[in-house]
């Protein structure tokens, strides 16, 4: 443990944590754009600059580890001036079309521009212009809104282990893109969308489906596999318009392509609403009791006529461990055969 003083407040914090994390523990907020608590530090946006006694120039609090006796200042006329300059620079290369942006109201850059009251910009100049062309079905990439914070690159590399995108080119023309600037062709887990602080990466499925204030959040569990990730459904009226997951869940907010984008079935008119029993070659609606009785009767009949080993059970990866346990118990104890297996083996 080391003792640090930030803005006059002293605390004892574990060795190895950053000044930014130490400040958080002291309830001191330092503005950031590129920092993400679950990703390795980047130090690119330069908003989290702090002054440290004895260090001649401001340093980024997100990359600087605490040291015993360290005295840091998170706000001063010089620091605020630098932050303002940085923000103006970012905004000078940004479409500033918040009125039609998917992320309006839920955008870190917009929030910072608001809190620093940036209306005029001293550094108006050329903006990067990119043709929007991306043939993928899930992720809208508007790279003119990209602030090059690198979060998407890192989540793809560090969390997903995919590395579908990276920085390319140099100078003002630097940008983040898939190899050879081809269309995005990845797992489409959408983690990049989840960590993007601006409207550069958004989900195509929820385009123009409603702002944050219009939606009701419903917590649920993903039914796609046994992991049981926690989902937050964004519901507008009676329609699920978007799926997200919160950082404090067991899956730490990370989702896969199915969990994040595979929700359109919820409102599908083709969805089954009752069990169906095939009678004389035709599927007819039935009650659950009817259906279960029918299945139980047929299982019993086969067992009596041909013996237990004439039956086999095949379970699904969409079930939880507990459900799979119960299933094999049913097959072994109730039906009496060891013919039980799981789809993941095939």
């Amino acid at each position: 443990m080391v003792k640090v003083t930030i803005d006059g407040k002293t605390a004892t914090v574990p060795e190895g944590i950053t000044v930014l994390d130490a400040a958080k523990r002291l309830h001191i907020t330092i503005p950031t754009l590129c920092h993400h608590p679950k990703l390795s530090p980047f130090g690119g946006c330069r908003l989290c600059l702090v002054e440290i006694k004895g260090v001649p120039r401001p340093v980024t609090s997100c990359t600087t580890p605490v040291a015993d006796g360290m005295e840091a200042t998170t706000t001063s006329p010089n620091l605020e001036n630098l932050r303002r300059t940085v923000l103006e620079l970012v905004l000078s290369d940004h479409p500033n079309d918040c009125m039609v942006c998917e992320r309006a109201g839920d955008c870190t850059l917009q929030e910072l521009a608001y809190s620093y009251g940036i209306r005029e910009n001293r550094f108006e100049g050329e903006r990067r212009t990119y043709a929007k062309r991306d043939g993928n079905p899930f992720i809208e990439r508007d790279m003119e809104k990209c602030i090059m914070c690198g979060r998407c690159v890192k989540v793809c590399e560090e969390v997903e282990g995919v590395g579908a995108i990276d920085f390319a080119y140099r100078g003002f023309k630097s940008k983040i893109c898939p190899p050879f600037e081809r269309d995005l062709d990845c797992e489409f887990c959408g983690q990049c969308v989840a960590v993007c602080p601006t409207g550069a990466l958004t989900g195509k499925l929820w385009k123009q489906k409603g702002r944050q204030k219009d939606v009701r959040e419903v917590e649920t569990t993903c039914g796609y596999c046994g992991c049981g990730c926690n989902l937050t459904l964004h519901v507008k009226g009676n329609e699920v318009t978007r799926v997200d997951s919160k950082a404090e869940t067991l899956n730490e907010g990370w989702l896969c392509v199915k969990g994040r984008f595979g929700y359109s079935f919820i409102g599908s008119t083709e969805r089954l609403t009752t069990p169906l029993i095939r009678r004389e070659g035709k599927l007819e609606p039935a009650s659950w009791d009817e259906a279960l009785d029918y299945v139980a009767g047929r299982l019993k009949g086969i067992k009596e006529e041909h013996g237990s080993d004439a039956l086999a059970g095949l379970s699904s990866a969409r079930c939880t461990n507990e459900e799979n346990y119960l299933f094999q118990k049913l097959i072994r104890a109730a039906i009496g055969t060891n013919n039980v297996d799981h789809c993941a083996r095939y």
């Binding site: 980047f42 130090g43 620079l89 970012v90 602030i147 920085f167 100078g171 003002f172 630097s174």
Partner: peptide, 13 residues
């Protein structure tokens, strides 16, 4: 400029 930090990437521009 490598494009990583804002002051260098946009500032020098």
């Amino acid at each position: 400029s490598c494009g990583k930090c804002v002051p260098c990437r946009i500032g020098t521009k």
